[in-house]
Design a binder for these strands. Structure first.
Lengths: 127, 127
DNA sequence: CAACTAATGCGACTATGTTGCAATAATAAA
DNA sequence: TTTATTATTGCAACATAGTCGCATTAGTTG
């Protein structure tokens, strides 16, 4: 797949992700667009942006799919992944920078890894 | 909350979890019961068993809530968690035994952690 | 065994996500 | 610039996961 046409909707969504380092669910994005974009379009654009490697996705602890801009990652034979963090006070979800490497275990081949953390973020702690 | 009455439905669900070390979603459980229990009852019992500390839950990468028997865990000041693993061939979800400890980071207070891994399990690899 | 009330089944509902189809708009070709 | 092509969009209907109120059923206690 990948992006074929550079549409206004696509640019609008990309701008929102570029304006902050937050991760967003389809619904949060939909709200932030003041519902001026069709719900299916939001879902379809998120999927296309992920296919194209511009966004990546992960599941929150509440079973909601979140998307964030894909950062460059280290490459090696092992599977690696950065943790995702949700603040229990302000509810913001962000990608953490520190990569975690999962060595291949002897009994199973690990192909994908996801770490999700919950707690209090820096700015909520200092209030 | 917690369990107040020991009903047939409760025993049925507990037996299914005790018969294997698999983790199950509400729907997998519902199927395994040959749909002989009401869907709401399944959800309510899973919630109650979790409140009571008998089951624990986690989100799969497909944003589905899974439940498994709670094992005894190490206790310390740090947050700890065992990873969950889903085989991409047979789709089984299991808890891994190795606990992972998350030291408290300087910038945020971590209260909960979840690790989800995907890959090929031992028995699928050796086929 | 009677009384109390937690647990259940039912149906309606919400939230999240998907799909087919006709209309629209981005791009390529003339 | 204009036209032709077809990816993208909005709409509506659908699918799946999960929740809730309420009347009935069935554990538990005395």
């Amino acid at each position: 797949m990948g992006i074929l046409r550079k549409t206004k909707n696509l640019e609008t969504i990309l701008d929102i992700f570029r304006q902050s380092n937050e991760a967003l669910s389809a619904n949060l994005l939909f709200e932030r667009l003041h519902e001026r974009m069709n719900r299916s379009t939001v879902y379809r654009l998120l999927e296309r942006l992920e296919d194209d490697g511009i966004l990546h996705s992960f599941a929150s602890m509440d079973n909601v799919k979140f998307y964030a801009l894909r950062q460059d990652c280290i490459s090696s034979g092992d599977v690696h992944s950065h943790p995702h963090f949700q603040c229990t006070s302000c509810n913001q979800v962000v990608c953490l920078e520190q990569e975690v490497v999962f060595p291949t275990l002897n009994r199973m081949r690990i192909e994908e890894a996801q770490i999700f953390l919950k707690g209090q973020c820096n700015s909520c702690l200092s209030q």
